[in-house]
């Protein structure tokens, strides 16, 4: 691991440091263009004012339609989200967290903990929104992680609860995933599209991850969610769980993939194909040294919908 860490460090440090004098030059260069920018800004404002005036009535109508929908994310097509509206998701999780440290001899060590987490996210198609999270007390994943923590010179009793966070984001602050162009009838076309949208090296493991990414906190339509489920079943090594339960005990249908001694499950509502939960556990020998049967994390998705502000939440059900 230390060799790989060194390569990662060397790669990012291969770019020469940026000097303060360099940014001063950029600042002076930019100052030569304020008139052009002011002109563009003025023209943009004029156009925007015109567009807003022309579309105000239309926007209001769109907004009413979207708000009236009782379960918008269960629609066959992706939910329409008007300007000023947000997708909302609430979830509870036990999340894995790894911390790296290097000893005096230069050897890299990893300390893994599990942290209870409550999360609410509001996200608009322009990437603006809010994430509010609270966490509980972390626990070490294994005795080995606790030993690493002590070896680093830290007191085990100082494994503190992460501070609550409530962050708001402007446009492009959050990563909005556009699911509207993903095919829902052709499995191979869906696989290719997922590779393109979500990135990564094509492989069965990556395909399974793509399925989770598109189901988790996105505006995927019911048709797409069902297509993702069907696609998951075609991935080599993925098995179906007919009587699955999420961590809160809700029944569903699931898909599971086992690799390197870990099983990862995605559990969906059998009618709406909404993601109910996901969980990871150790099912066999693994080089991380985790005990077979031990829990590696879970998430349950509790509520979702479309709301009109980053302080609103959809009604239950």
């Amino acid at each position: 691991m230390s060799d790989l860490n060194t390569l990662l460090r060397e790669y990012a440090d291969a770019a020469p440091p940026i000097r303060q004098s360099e940014i001063e030059h950029r600042r002076q260069r930019r100052r030569a263009r304020p008139v052009v920018y002011a002109g563009i800004a003025f023209a943009t404002i004029v156009v925007l004012v015109g567009v807003v005036a022309l579309t105000r009535t239309n926007s209001k109508n769109t907004s009413r339609v979207a708000t009236r929908s009782p379960a918008p994310c269960d629609r066959a097509v992706a939910c329409p989200i008007a300007t000023g509206q947000f997708l909302y998701f609430k979830s509870d999780a036990l999340s894995g967290s790894d911390e790296m440290w290097t000893d005096k001899a230069g050897a890299a060590h990893q300390i893994s903990t599990l942290v209870p987490n409550h999360r609410e996210i509001w996200i608009a198609p322009d990437g603006s929104g809010r994430i509010a999270e609270t966490s509980g007390k972390p626990t070490f994943v294994s005795a080995r992680d606790k030993e690493e923590w002590v070896a680093r010179g830290s007191d085990p009793t100082t494994l503190n609860v992460p501070a609550p966070s409530d962050r708001r984001f402007g446009p492009h602050g959050l990563g909005w995933t556009d699911t509207t162009q993903l095919p829902t009838t052709d499995t191979e076309a869906l696989r290719v599209a997922l590779d393109r949208v979500d990135g990564g090296t094509p492989s069965p493991g990556e395909d399974f991850v793509h399925v989770g990414d598109m189901l988790r906190e996105t505006n995927a339509s019911r048709d797409l969610r069902e297509a993702l489920y069907r696609f998951a079943l075609t991935i080599p090594g993925v098995t179906q769980i007919t009587d699955a339960r999420d961590h809160s005990g809700r029944k569903g249908i699931g898909v599971a993939r086992t690799a390197f001694g870990f099983e990862n499950d995605l559990i969906l509502d059998p009618n709406t194909f909404m993601l109910l939960g996901e969980q990871s556990k150790v099912v066999g020998p693994n080089q991380a040294g985790r005990a077979v049967g031990s829990e590696q994390g879970w998430t349950v998705y509790l509520r979702s919908g479309i709301v009109d502000s980053v302080t609103a939440v959809p009604s239950p059900g």
């Binding site: 691991m1 790989l4 860490n5 990662l8 460090r9 790669y11 990012a12 967290s97 790894d98 911390e99 790296m100 440290w101 290097t102 890299a108």
Partner: peptide, 11 residues
Amino acid sequence: TVLIHGFGWTH
């Protein structure tokens, strides 16, 4: 990967 494994940033 670069920031956490290469430079020890936290999650």
